[in-house]
Design a binder for these strands. Structure first.
Lengths: 371, 371
DNA sequence: CATTGATATGAATCCTACG
DNA sequence: ACGTAGGATTCATATCAAT
């Protein structure tokens, strides 16, 4: 139940679409209406707990994360902060929305635990395996060559969008896996100030955001990033035709992100428009009988063009055992499997030509649309 | 402080060395004395969720899974179980001992969070990237191609043993990283019963245990596995000359593990004996002067055999600026670095021969041992 | 222009034995 | 326990100057 008073204080989503809202992440999240966001990418402070300076062998200083925004006094303070922003994230997500958080060993176990307790449901965890990590200069530990992303749905019941076929296609027609080998953000992609110094100490590579946003969203979806920084999430969203909303506290980052995103061009294409995710039309076989595409009693053939069974008036089929089955169960029975797709198995004979059932349902749909 | 009554109920470690103790993991852990174990490998139940039903950690089905409260209570049950066995693990570890736990997204965030709260300190988290993972058959998720290990010390103060150079050597002379690409356990390594069915559903590959045990332990260390299963930890420990203690509840696994370990041969070698970890002897330069290896006032030369500085009676050196420095600071100054190792930089001239300082300290140590 | 080599740098819980 | 002196320690990539 939403409180009508609070509701009045909410911002209209349309007013902040494709903008960066300046402010504290929790304050701003509280202004966003319930159930309005499709996908959230959150790259919160990691609470690195570093002390002193880290020197390279040559004597130069390693310029790591020493920002005020990463300082917390204890795990409990960090946990409380995360519970607050994560609760709001969960509230603003649509019922089938999802959220991806990123972290490293210092904080990812805090995030994962808290989010499971809040009722978020893990879809996958993903390892960003860095090609070119910062080495362990002192030679005292394993080189930390990865970061962890956890992808959650709003809750267990959510039916999350995952563009499986698109990711498979982009992975050389192999199922995409949970370990992603990608370089860190440097070179011309890394935003620098006039002095050539990096603007944000932890800018993420666009390749990483591209992969997760393309996995989880549809064109024109709304992607929210509560720790927007220099706007990698916004840049990628714009590039592939998704809407973004950024929340960021520091002017320095907002200025850089705005200019960066301004320069981005929409490069949507068949792949980012999810042409590969199109599913075959759902057509009851009975419709095909009613419209004359199929005729009761007609013979159905295997791919080897051998007679296998006959069509009943209710859309089921029977073989010599005379037990009515669906086309799917019948093809599975013939192939000695538990399940199979009958549409792509059975053929009918029209004159001398054999026609796959699958073709008929597309013909039917086309005629419906034309008529 | 240990309670003397409880103390009497403890088992002597020597009595259970290189054996499998049958029993509930928490019960048995309680019998092990404080501060006696060098390394623990723990592969606890994963709290897997199958076919839409949430399973209790002991494998019974949980009722009312759609209810938020019930879901949370089942997490708490798992959490409480983990707190119990992890507290005992922390107690039995030596001050500089360490523990590695393995899990996947269902449970690893529970383990990580709980262990940080108990005061364990993360050394590294490690990704076991599987070469040959089980695909996602339904085609609805990313293929889960990894498991996560977290390696903790007993607490923040622990000085943990990490065989850095050994791991570097085995990695083609490159620093070992946090992502390990290894196959899953199958083929002849996978233990099967008479019917050819796998005995344990989650048998870990020996290559994984080899890598973590060799990273974290010294020869003759005591390695404890509270969820011993079919004994991969014990097999690897025996193979590389470490002692093991296994705890396991089920006879089926104990029988298989005993026979498996019986067949293992000790294959210790220079690498597993950590010959690469030997550090150069600590010899004060003054000792070399006292024993005549070096003479006050003598010249020290660079690797290019150019005169650089002269030796003082206290073991320091001076150049033309006449400021006394250690051999390390002086070599760093010459090389324009902040630090350098003087032992492997300076030469003395003896007759026509140039001799590296490093050689002298080895000669000195050898003479001491012979004398 | 292509190639080579020197230099710079990236989410970092980054030393340890001895007195 | 704590301070101090001794001395051990990095990889992949990008940029830029030099050849």
């Amino acid at each position: 139940m939403t409180n009508s008073f609070l509701e009045q204080e909410k911002i209209s989503i349309n007013r902040i679409l494709n903008t960066i809202v300046k402010g504290d992440c929790i304050d701003v999240l509280q202004k966003i209406p319930d159930n309005t966001i499709d996908f959230i990418f959150a790259d919160p402070p990691y609470f690195m707990q570093t002390e002193g300076d880290l020197m390279r062998f040559e004597g130069t200083k390693f310029n790591g994360v020493d920002d005020e925004w990463d300082k917390f006094s204890s795990f409990s303070e960090y946990d409380a902060f995360c519970v607050s922003w994560l609760r709001e994230c969960q509230r603003v997500l649509k019922a089938n929305g999802s959220i991806c958080v990123i972290g490293s060993f210092q904080n990812i176990y805090r995030l994962g635990y808290i989010m499971q307790n809040l009722g978020f449901w893990i879809i996958n965890d993903i390892i960003w395996h860095k090609n070119n990590p910062v080495p362990n200069f002192a030679g005292t530990r394993l080189c930390n060559a990865h970061e962890t992303l956890i992808w959650f749905s709003k809750n267990k019941k959510s039916k999350v969008n995952f563009n499986y076929k698109t990711m498979k296609y982009l992975n050389g027609d192999k199922q995409e896996k949970s370990v992603w080998n990608l370089p860190i953000c440097n070179g011309s992609e890394r935003l620098k100030d006039k002095e050539g110094l990096k603007i944000h100490s932890t800018q993420k590579p666009e390749s990483l955001l591209y992969k997760i946003i393309l996995s989880a969203t549809k064109p024109n979806d709304i992607v929210l990033d509560p720790f927007f920084g220099t706007g990698t999430t916004g840049a990628v969203a714009k590039r592939i035709g998704r809407n973004y909303i950024g929340i960021e506290r520091e002017d320095k980052y907002i200025v850089a992100a705005k200019e960066r995103i301004r320069q981005i061009l929409d490069e949507s294409n068949d792949i980012t428009d999810l042409s590969l995710e199109v599913r075959p039309p759902k057509v009851p076989i009975k419709k095909l009988i009613d419209t004359g595409y199929l005729i009761t009693g007609m013979a159905l053939y295997s791919p080897q063009k051998e007679y296998k069974c006959s069509l009943l008036s209710n859309g089921q089929v029977i073989d010599k055992e005379k037990k009515p089955l669906s086309i799917h169960k019948m093809s599975a029975k013939i192939l000695n499997k538990s399940n199979h797709n009958g549409w792509s198995y059975f053929y009918i004979k029209r004159g001398e030509r054999f026609i796959l059932l699958d073709e008929l349902r597309y013909n039917y749909i086309q005629e419906q649309n034309e008529g």
